[in-house]
Structures are given as C-alpha cells and as structure tokens.
C-alpha cells in the first residue's frame, strides 16, 4: 500500500507542470524514503531528476518499493481539477494497476477523486556522479526564466560563460546578437530574492540549446532560487531546491564544436 498526503497539494501540480514539456511518461519510483523520478526528454538531450522526501509529506506510507508508471499529460489534466489550496492524497495498492488522486478543499467542503491507469514503462536509470563543478551560480529563479525567454527571441543557442566579471548569457541569430551579464551582488545590500552568488574556481564557457533551458525554467514557481552548475565538457546542472520537500534537477548536454 502506498499513501501520501500533502497539505500544500499545489506543489505536486507545480512539479508536473515543470516536467510535462520534457517528459511524456515516466516512472515515479516510490519507497519508504519518498518519491523519485528520473527521465530523459524524447531527444535524449536532457535528464530530469525529481526527489520528494517522505518527510516533506504530512503523511507518507509505502510498504513496498515500486515504480508507478504515469502519463504526465494525463496527470497534468487530472491536476487541473486540483485547486490552489487543496490537500492532495495519492494512493496505490501494491499490486494495483491504477493510482488514485484525492483533492480536498481546505474547509473540507469539496472532495474530488480521480483514478488514473498505470503504465508499464521500460525506463533506463542513470548513475549521476557527484561532480565538483568549476562554477556555480545561484540566482533568482524568476530572473533566470526571464533571461531564457528574452534571449530566445534572438537565437536557439546560448553561450553561458562564467568569468571574473560575472555570468554572461550570449545569443546570436539572423536578427542580431544579445548579451546579458549578471554580476555577483553578495557584497551589496541586495534583498535576498535578487541575490546573485557566483562561486568560480576557473572560467567556464559552454553552449546550450535554449529551448531546453526554457522548459527547465517552468520549475520557477516551485521555489525562489535556482543554481546553475557548470564544468567544461559536462552537462549543465540546473537545480531547483524546494525547501523541506526535495529538489528538481535538470541536466543538459552541451553543444560541442567539432
């Protein structure tokens, strides 16, 4: 028996909104420690890794570890019926072929339940090594969304370079070129939400497809901050930490010159 109840049910809705552009169907691996998901996009260019800790839920019970294969676009449709302040309960039997969603309004005056059929999904799992990244930038999640959306007007590829002057996002396309530089402002009196922290061991300069970054940025409603971790010739890690609940990490393979 699996049962998980979350007062802040909206979090689940936001998680699915942050995944469904990249991943059509995925296994939610449930165990006594929580829920994990690892999935690649259909082009195998990026990898999403979700972690939701059991302690982050108001109630969490999982008698047997198992994968719950779910179509994310169906799940997103079901979650459209969940209101902002609803309490969400997820339930599945050990040998069942469905997952149950229950949405309760805060005042307990409306209760809805939905059942979704589970799918058998043959998914590969990757071992993600602990990487000592050469540059880490932590900034406002909404500002990062803005940068990705704004620069995509000009081109498909962004060069991200972290140097002593800050982190520069550059795009060039048929229309022209654009650069946005964000500087470390930790020494000034910047309010928490707008703080930019740059931790650089050595300069890094890598190219990435903007369309994936734009999809990752859909996770911004989950939390205030995002971290970008870079090292030469390895995937970019874009990490959204959800306080007391878990994290949503995206890995994006770079574009490499011949």
């Amino acid at each position: 028996m699996f049962e998980a109840r979350l007062t802040k049910g909206e979090l689940i809705k936001k998680v699915i909104e942050a995944l469904k552009d990249l991943v059509t169907e995925a296994n939610f691996d449930i165990s006594a420690t929580g829920i994990q998901l690892q999935a690649m996009d259909s082009s195998h260019v990026s990898l999403c890794a979700l972690q939701m800790k059991a302690e982050g839920f108001d109630h969490f019970r999982c008698d047997r570890s198992m994968p719950l294969g779910i179509n994310l676009s169906s799940m997103s449709k079901v979650l459209k019926c969940c209101n902002k302040d609803d309490i969400v309960t997820l339930k599945a039997e050990d040998d069942g072929d469905s997952i149950n969603f229950m949405f309760e309004s805060k005042d307990q005056d409306k209760i809805s339940d939905f059942e979704l059929k589970l799918m058998d999904i043959d998914s590969e799992h990757f071992g993600i090594p602990d990487t000592d990244y050469k540059a880490t930038v932590t900034m406002s999640a909404s500002e990062f969304t803005r940068i990705c959306n704004d620069l995509s007007i000009l081109g498909e590829t962004v060069a991200i370079s972290v140097g002593k002057d800050g982190v520069r996002f550059s795009v060039s396309g048929e229309m022209g070129t654009g650069n946005m530089t964000v500087r470390d402002n930790t020494s000034s009196d910047t309010k928490e939400a707008d703080r930019v922290e740059i931790d650089m061991e050595e300069p890094v300069n890598l190219n990435f497809a903007l369309r994936y970054l734009k999809s990752f940025a859909k996770a911004a409603p989950l939390t205030d901050r995002v971290s970008l971790c870079l090292s030469r010739d390895v995937p970019l890690l874009v990490k959204y930490e959800i306080p007391e609940f878990g994290s949503l990490s995206y890995y994006l393979a770079p574009k490499i010159d011949d």
Binding site: L47, F126, G127, A209, P235, A253, K255, I256, D257
Partner: peptide, 14 residues
C-alpha cells in the same frame, strides 16, 4: 553553433 551531444554520453546506465 556546435553539435548537440546526447545526455547518455555522460552518464552510465545503472
């Protein structure tokens, strides 16, 4: 600008 590399090239399957 640059060739897109696949993500599997970086992570070993478990």
């Amino acid at each position: 600008k640059g060739n897109q590399v696949r993500i599997e090239n970086f992570f070993a399957a478990k």
